[in-house]
Simulated assay, not measured.
Amino acid sequence: MAMQEFEEQILVAAPVTLKTWVRYEYDVFVIMNQGEIDCFLNFLYGRNEAIQFEMERLLDYDGCHPVEHNKSVVKMLWSGAGNLCSTKENLKEERKHLEKVFVDNGYPKSVIKGWTTTQGKRKRAADTRQAATRRVTLPYVKGASEVAARLLRKHGGEVVHKPANTLHGGLTKMKDTEEEEDKPGVVYNIGCGN
Score class of each variant (00 low, 15 high):
1 M>W: 00
6 F>Q: 03
10 I>A: 00
12 V>R: 14
14 A>G: 03
14 A>K: 08
17 T>I: 15
19 K>E: 11
20 T>M: 02
24 Y>I: 11
26 Y>D: 14
29 F>K: 12
32 M>A: 05
33 N>I: 03
40 F>Y: 04
44 L>C: 08
45 Y>I: 13
47 R>I: 11
50 A>M: 10
53 F>W: 13
57 R>F: 14
58 L>F: 11
59 L>T: 10
65 H>D: 00
65 H>L: 03
66 P>C: 00
69 H>Q: 14
69 H>M: 05
72 S>N: 13
75 K>F: 14
75 K>P: 01
78 W>N: 12
83 N>D: 14
83 N>F: 01
86 S>G: 15
87 T>A: 12
101 V>L: 09
102 F>D: 00
106 G>H: 08
106 G>F: 06
107 Y>H: 08
108 P>N: 09
109 K>W: 10
113 K>W: 05
122 R>D: 01
125 A>H: 06
125 A>S: 10
127 D>W: 10
130 Q>C: 11
130 Q>A: 15
131 A>H: 06
133 T>S: 11
134 R>L: 09
144 A>D: 08
151 L>N: 06
154 K>A: 08
154 K>D: 15
155 H>M: 15
155 H>R: 15
155 H>P: 02
161 H>T: 11
161 H>K: 10
165 N>D: 14
172 T>M: 04
177 T>I: 11
179 E>I: 07
179 E>L: 07
182 D>E: 05
182 D>M: 12
185 G>V: 09
186 V>A: 01
190 I>D: 08
